[in-house]
Design a protein around this nucleic acid. Structure first.
Lengths: 205, 205
DNA sequence: GAAATGTTTGACCAAGCGGTCAGGTTCACG
DNA sequence: CGTGAACCTGACCGCTTGGTCAAACATTTC
């Protein structure tokens, strides 16, 4: 928001190294559980050097969250009102599941934040996120009214999609504990299950 | 496990006060984010007094998790192989949703723990929880084979139920941010949505 | 090649942390 | 009502935390 884009290439590189390290640490320990020393070590820099690039621990965390929100919302943007409703929604489910598989740390960063009451991103949730969800919910409701989709509460449908997909990133430790640590296909199985599941539930009679 | 049941009524009372306060604090800040001072203040006791009843911060956290695991597993135990499959599963969904509504702090305590890699309850997950889930998954698979249930991957079905119900406790901040802070019926709406949703998805053709 | 600017660090600090302890207070019970 | 056990607390301790700073080291620029 207020930050000027980094000037030198060293700045650009080190800021990125720090954000990468911070993502690792924040996503596995939460904001308070993470320490600057941990982040510095993970980044291969000294602590004062980390603070040379970011004003504070808070600032690193904010930078991460800001940079992420857009990526996280993107797939919902793609819900196309011109498409075939059931297939559009299934595609959204699979897109979100892919995100959970490829960016689990980002997902857990959000999860940590929201479980603890979203103190730092409340505004983003009540503002742009709510606006986008409301818009897409209206779209889904219109589909349902037109009989092209089983009648569903659109907001709760969206929640269910978030829940079922992000579960594989956020609760990975539990999923792996139950399925066994090395079930390499469990994301594929999840994809198959969710596809079939949402298709059955959403296809109108 | 090793703890002798408290003797005096003062011990019983204060241990309970401390656990109640600790649940509040741990569930909103995570283990590392919570402090003994916070717990002591919330409990209305001095910090040394808290440590008179529990050996350490760890010990309080363990006591909470131990006492909770059973409650959390109970509804899955009730899945009755003699019942009607779809209705049994819908009843399970609603039972879990009620738990999320009535015990959100307990749910968030687990969520915090699992998001951060479940370092303290890995054994419980890979042991008793996995055993119970595998048993019930076999039951569900049998129902599906008998044609009394749509064909589904039983493990992923159970994950989806956990995800969709606990979502309303764990991600409460997000749900409220989107639905508006005072939608008193949102749990009822969720119940209606999930009932309809799982019925459609699980009823065999 | 030197001055100016940008980068890095060891040493340090105040505050907060989990936990201890000596001693005072309250309670149960004969 | 006396006494021993249970309960409670202020003061304190060693350690970690986020953050500072002066000075050393690189890098760019002219």
């Amino acid at each position: 928001m207020t930050s000027v884009p980094p000037k030198t290439r060293i700045q650009k590189r080190n800021r990125e190294i720090i954000l990468e390290a911070a993502l690792e640490v924040f996503s596995t320990h939460g904001f308070r559980g993470a320490t600057l020393d941990q982040i510095a070590q993970e980044a291969g820099l000294s602590k004062p050097n980390v603070l040379y690039y970011f004003a504070s621990k808070e600032a690193i965390h904010s930078a991460l969250l800001d940079g992420l929100m857009d990526t996280w919302l993107a797939p919902l943007h793609e819900l196309d009102s011109a498409g075939e409703p059931v297939e559009e929604l299934v595609a959204y489910v699979l897109h979100k599941l892919r995100l959970a598989r490829d960016f689990p740390r980002e997902s857990r960063l959000f999860a940590n934040e929201i479980v603890q009451g979203a103190p730092r991103i409340r505004d983003q949730i009540e503002g742009p996120l709510k606006a986008l969800v409301d818009e897409k919910a209206a779209q889904i409701a219109a589909w349902a009214r037109a009989g092209r989709l089983a009648p569903v509460d659109p907001h709760h449908l969206i929640f269910s999609i978030w829940a079922t997909t992000q579960h594989y990133a956020d609760f990975d430790a539990q999923v792996r504990g139950i399925l066994g640590p090395d079930d390499p296909a469990h994301f594929d199985n999840a994809a198959a299950f969710l596809t079939e599941f949402y298709r059955r539930a959403l296809t109108p009679d």
